[in-house]
Design a protein around this nucleic acid. Structure first.
Lengths: 342, 342
DNA sequence: AGAAAAAATGTAAGCGTTTACAGAGTGAGG
DNA sequence: CCTCACTCTGTAAACGCTTACATTTTTTCT
């Protein structure tokens, strides 16, 4: 059932059918009705490839994320997909894993799918070796790239990032004010936001008058037990009275450590995690967590993207140049629950 | 940069270029090299629409799920997407929500994207009014529909379901054997698997010699607090000594109830949840949970799909008819942790 | 060396749309 | 009644690929 079938059945030309299904305004009511009747009867759905070929845009966004089963990213995908679909765009999802080659291959793949734009969700798309970001920079020459919680300085690459640094800094200071003097920071991945968080810790310490060399910053495997065991070892070395973690998953790990060690939370040890995902409120006791304002961030990403892809037109029908800042920062917010004394 | 540009630059015909990029074996090494060199130099990516148009398949699977931020579904999406991509297929994701009209609209949308098949992930796609499944049944006439944890009896609709009934039944019996005599079952959605689980409870009770009318089965909102408050009310009415929940989210709710009420787990009250997602092991104490074997189920879905879409060929190159059972059941498995005495 | 078979390559016709442009129909104004 | 302007409709050429079929080149066999 294609446009020819419909045109034949309705006794009009394919151009008229095309006009009707695209809601053009230069079609007579009579024709519109004839066509619609036939479509309703036979249940025709236009072929999106042919459309894409014909008009050069598929109204499709490629979303890359390392692992959609990560609670944080799963939420991001949900927000992004829902919002984009409202705007008439569909999403092709690629779970790329963490490996550079795979990430690059996924990008190419989405390119072949002629996506109108890319969204790189999560902070894993900024490689340490900046040469390895080249494929993104090149890709951006054709289609805009939006980075959620990542940042690369390049043409046509835009970022929406959470204020990781500020969020962590606030947490550190709050802990200090509530009496914590021996805080340990646990993180599990080196990434754009990862380094910002470490900056936050350092800044917080500075403001509290803690010398940087007495700061404890450790890296562990991003699993509940991985973190719990890491903290166990660290505690053996030297006890601490509070933990800040770079994710809720690690926060849960910290909690498990405390339980196993028989430490009371928050009396003996305070914990602040990051993201404020479902895990934070699922925990027992519930985790105090820095809310990364994911929904807000995703909504910004979509809004910027729509502006870029459908720029407003001037009187003559030419797209007006839009000025969009390359980096949008979303303020994080500390959500106080049961694992802290403040 | 299209196939003509490449063919010109390489001094061969577009057919040869096409053969090279599709890895056909009837190309001379010389030609292949010429073409590959040009492609490497200019960085050509074939246009997937044109390909789809040309060969009638886009190698794309449409995945529908109600809410990709649900931990269970997020995992499913990850497993499905990863596996399908390994087989050369891409996924278009649609988060449809729970509303019938939206689900139907999403299905149509994927149809217009000419997906080669549909995967309906989660048990929310079997409507109560069976008329409302018609769009799926009709759609299946064109492209196979795979249901993950749902079942509709129709041509070209295939199901992979977890043995919900058996899993819940086992949990019930285990609880009984460990001394539980007043078990309450909490669920939060009516769906295909939802009704199977209730059957499981009833069967378990029967085997333990508990009369069906003394069985407590209650329905609540699928949030931590929603479930906790529901149980609080139920406990006021009449205490119970064990809870089975239809999801880990509800299991966490049950745990919150116990904590607030000051009940010791598992001494005063035992809890068994369902799915064995990350939430179950994040909980404190960790939840005993029925593992729905999601990874196994997803892998089955993909394998079946690949068989359907790429049936083996006989000597003459015609597709051999494959016989695929309409319903594959995956055995669930009880994972014992800290919220039960067994 | 020549014929036949096999392999490599090229040509051209689709695939189902969109859209510029041309053409037909309608109504108003002179 | 003719012309002009306007609205509506149709024709045909893209869009970038795949692939059946025809043609050319190479290899094999006698």
């Amino acid at each position: 059932m294609n446009i020819y079938d419909i045109s034949k059945a309705a006794g009009v030309s394919i151009a008229s059918v095309s006009r009707v299904i695209n809601g053009a305004d230069n079609v007579s009511e009579k024709t519109r009705k004839k066509v619609m009747d036939v479509i309703d009867e036979y249940g025709y759905t236009p072929n999106a490839y042919a459309r894409g070929l014909g008009r050069g845009s598929m109204k499709t966004i490629g979303i890359m994320c390392s692992d959609s089963s990560d609670i944080y990213l799963a939420n991001a995908i949900y927000y992004l997909e829902t919002e984009l679909r409202k705007n008439g765009y569909n999403c092709i999802l690629c779970c790329t894993g963490y490996d550079y080659e795979n990430k690059k291959a996924s990008f190419e793949l989405l390119k072949s799918r002629q996506v109108d734009a890319f969204i790189l969700a999560g902070s894993k798309y900024v490689e340490k070796d900046s040469k390895d970001n080249q494929y993104i920079i090149d890709g951006a020459k054709e289609h805009p790239v939006m980075m959620l919680n990542g940042y690369i300085d390049a043409d046509n690459v835009y970022s929406v990032v959470c204020d990781d640094k500020g969020g962590i800094k606030d947490a550190f200071i709050k802990l200090y004010e509530s009496g914590a003097r021996k805080t340990i920071y646990v993180y599990s991945s080196d990434s754009y936001s990862g380094s910002k968080k470490i900056e936050g810790i350092k800044e917080g310490a500075r403001e509290c008058g803690i010398p940087e060399n007495s700061l404890r910053i450790v890296k562990g495997e991003k699993t509940f037990n991985g973190i719990a065991e890491l903290l166990e070892k660290e505690y053996e070395k030297k006890p601490f009275d509070s933990v800040i973690t770079s994710s809720d998953t690690s926060g849960i790990g910290a909690l498990k450590f405390a339980v196993r060690r028989g430490l009371r939370v928050p009396e003996d040890i305070q914990i602040v995690s990051f993201n404020n995902s479902k895990l934070a409120s699922a925990a027992n006791p519930e985790l105090t967590s820095v809310d990364a304002r994911l929904e807000e961030s995703c909504s910004r990403v979509c809004k910027l993207l729509m502006k870029l892809l459908n720029p407003p037109l001037d009187e003559e029908g030419n797209p007006k140049p839009v000025s969009i800042s390359k980096k949008t920062k979303v303020k994080s917010k500390l959500v106080t629950r049961e694992t802290t004394r403040f």
